[in-house]
Computed example of a mutant assay.
Amino acid sequence: MPQVAIVTSFVSLLLVLCCSIEQTVEVRSDGSQSTSRTLLQNRTGWQGDYMDLTNMPDLPTWCMESELPQQKVVNSKVFPLVLTPSSSNVQMSAEELFEKLEHDYASLYWYLVKYGSIFFRNFPLKSAANFDEFVKRFKNWEPLPYIGGAAVRNKVHGNVYTTNESPPDAKIPFHHEMAQTPNHPYYLFFYCQQPPTQGGETPILSSYEVYERAKTSIPQFIDKLQSTGVRYVRHLPDSDDHSSPIGRSWKSTFLTDDKHEAERKHLQSGGEFEWLPDNVMKTTSAILPAIRWDNRTAHFTFFNSIVAAYTGWNDSRNVAERAVIFGDGSPILPQDIQVLVQIMNDLSVAIPWQFGDVMLIDNKQVMHSRKAFTPPRDIYAALCK
């Protein structure tokens, strides 16, 4: 019999109750009162102040807004924002770029929040080391260790990692980075060191727009998501499985070879675990909100990895349709997933990679995916909070 150790920690309770509780008092006809409490997850979100995005700072003079044919207009704004060097800065060095960025990163943050993503093209970034320095110039953002993520990744330089190393013919569905964990990055950088021969784009979309369309198309599904949240279920192998898009082992996931330490870290996140044969660790996440409120923009976002889990978490250990469930334990229906997939396909923007490109994503409001490709392809990532 497999060893079973399922523990729900106090952290899990806090995560479930991270939203407000509304108390309702009903006065009956006989004068007695009935008190009920309703969990309000529709205001679960992140700390942060509202930002008046109609009153923007000027773009730094060393860059300018450009256009690419793949961009779309989303919510009356171009998506993503594309920046290239201004005419007087075409020949600037990497060191000059870092100096300018360090001075102007606060202004760029406003543009990131307004547009959701900034695509930097034709800037002097030639290596993973250059990319790492570029990321470091966003001074208020701290590097986030890759703990709890599902994909196999390798460290390249500093806070720079490879992206998902699943086979090139595997498509990775839309998701928010590490939304299946309580500790996810707020900002996500991608850098192109080697563009693929064919395909391999990193499509993006507005999670705010997904929420708005889904609220109209499948309102009952959205209501249930807001009231119950979701839980993610994964079977983690004993060693990394590079044939799987979610093949990261429990040792890599929790950065330890010690089972007890892996258990401790997972319980600390509010989850549950079970040891199965062949040292496979079955993990069930804490109940996590699937829709969040972004104070900065005063918008709801469809912040989760539901579609990615339900359509992409398949391998010899995992069954995708059982990889994500409602917070009350009930299954998610395939017809709702089909609607979400169609919405995401309609909103998707995919820009072909060129050497030196950087895509900065506000992970609170933009989802990303990966198309299949013909190798070679070297796209690196850096996570920040």
Rank of each mutant, 00 (worst) to 15 (best):
N122Q: 12
S305P: 00
T44F: 06
F303S: 10
S93V: 03
P289Y: 07
S166Y: 04
V307M: 12
R377Q: 10
G199C: 05
I218Y: 10
V152H: 06
A151H: 03
S107R: 15
E201P: 02
S87E: 12
A170D: 12
E67M: 08
L108F: 10
E22C: 11
N164L: 04
G158P: 02
V156F: 08
N295D: 10
V25K: 12
S86I: 00
R296V: 06
N140F: 08
L360R: 06
V113F: 10
V7D: 13
V349T: 02
E261P: 07
T253C: 15
L39N: 07
P173W: 09
I291Y: 07
D132E: 13
V210K: 01
G45D: 03
Y380H: 13
G148N: 05
T284M: 14
L108T: 00
Q226I: 11
S32H: 09
K100G: 15
L383H: 07
V113A: 11
D49R: 11
T284S: 14
P69R: 07
A179H: 03
V307Q: 08
I343N: 04
R292F: 10
V324L: 00
S227D: 09
L108I: 00
V4A: 09
F98W: 13
T253M: 13
G199K: 03
L333Y: 09
G45E: 00
E133N: 14
F190L: 15
V366N: 02
A350D: 02
R43W: 07
Q365C: 12
G148D: 05
T284F: 07
D238V: 05
T54L: 08
L125C: 12
N345W: 06
H299T: 04
M92H: 01
T311Y: 10
C384I: 01
H260M: 12
T24Q: 13
A151R: 04
K282V: 02
N130A: 10
S36Q: 12
V349H: 03
S206E: 04
E272K: 14
V341G: 11
D357P: 01
S252E: 09
V135H: 03
P195L: 08
S9H: 07
R296W: 06
Y115M: 06
I21V: 11
Q70V: 04
S9F: 05
K282C: 03
E65N: 14
P57K: 02
I246M: 13
P143D: 14
L83A: 06
S207T: 02
T163C: 08
W62Q: 04
S107D: 15
V74I: 15
I287H: 08
K259Y: 14
Y211T: 00
F120V: 01
L68F: 08
Q71W: 05
T197F: 07
V156I: 06
N363F: 02
S244P: 05
D49P: 04
T24A: 11
L188R: 05
Q193G: 15
A323T: 00
E274H: 05
K139F: 12
K171P: 07
C384H: 14
Y111A: 03
V160N: 00
S76P: 03
P145V: 01
N154P: 01
I291T: 10
M367A: 14
T162P: 09
R137A: 09
S243T: 09
S36T: 14
P334W: 07
E261M: 12
L83Q: 03
T202C: 09
E272W: 07
